[in-house]
Amino acid sequence: MTNKLLPRPRVLRSLRVPLLSRRKTERIGGRLFLITTALPLVLVVVIALALLARTYPILETQPIGELLFGQTWHPLRGEFGFYPFIIGTLWVTLVSMLLAVPLCLLSAIYLAEYAHPAVRAVMKPLLDLLAGIPSVIYGVWGLVAIVPWVQNVAAPASKRWLDFLPFFAVTNTTGYSILAGGIVLAVMVIPVIIAVTYEVMEAVPNGLRESSLAVGATRWQTIKHVVMPKAAPGVLVGVVLGFSRAFGETMAVLMVVGNVPRVPSSIFDPAYPLTALIANNYGEMLSIPLYDSALMGAALVLLVVVLIFNLGSALLLQHFLARTQA
């Protein structure tokens, strides 16, 4: 009875069908995006597993401690110690960060807080341009400019004035050294770190600066007490990004660090970073047993360290955000 009196409105029915199919598209779309988002993550895991599998043969013959902390690299005798390479990588990266980070902070502060908009408008694209230069070019620049400079200027100067310091000793250097690698790397990561740091400082709301200035703080006090603390997590991310870039950089470093598999003791010593080891040797002399496996192991170490750093920075970032934000 009621059905006759109140027939189900047709409009509603016709509405329902496309609604359902729209919902379906929504669901499928959602899943699709999930898959595309997850893909890179899966890829990293797959790469790590593949590396692990390829490293396995050498892990069977040598304990992992010996591999990581072994000091000698002598593939023909079956000795594969990563230690000099790991230390070499750390040295070069550390030197580059020590050179780059203070410079980047000051530049970013200048750009974000002091520079005239016109200066900013010119500098920003220039820095982005620098970030896009292929690393080989930095390597060539390192070869023709930095290596001779280290040999002819920096090393003699250090011998004269800084010889007493640890890490600054000079023993007839060729210029192919950790310092040269560090300088080239620093120049490479500077645009990256400045870009991130600048962006983060720029994102600090103007009202915060005004609030500080309004009680009579100077510009520098405002930067020190308000802008920098607010921007700190982002700055940290920029630094870690630069670190990862420097840590994993291959071409430019390989061209200027000398590639001598020995544990360095001074910034004027040559070094042999992990990346250079893999790039220089993979595909050659693979007839030597376990050589291939050892190189894969080196790649795995590289991957794990970079992952740990990125993960660590993400966690630190969260910690900072929780502390400074509401």
Binding site: G207, L208, E210, S211, S212, A214, V215, G216, A217, V226
Partner: peptide
């Protein structure tokens, strides 16, 4: 000195990225 003498309240509040206490103490310390 001018700005110390002439306080300003903005359109919306901007607490400085520090504790409640430090916000009030900020100007005194500066």
């Amino acid at each position: 000195e001018v700005r110390k003498k002439v306080g300003l309240l903005l359109q919306r509040p901007f607490p400085l990225p520090m504790s409640i206490y430090d916000n009030v103490a900020y100007g005194l310390r500066i």
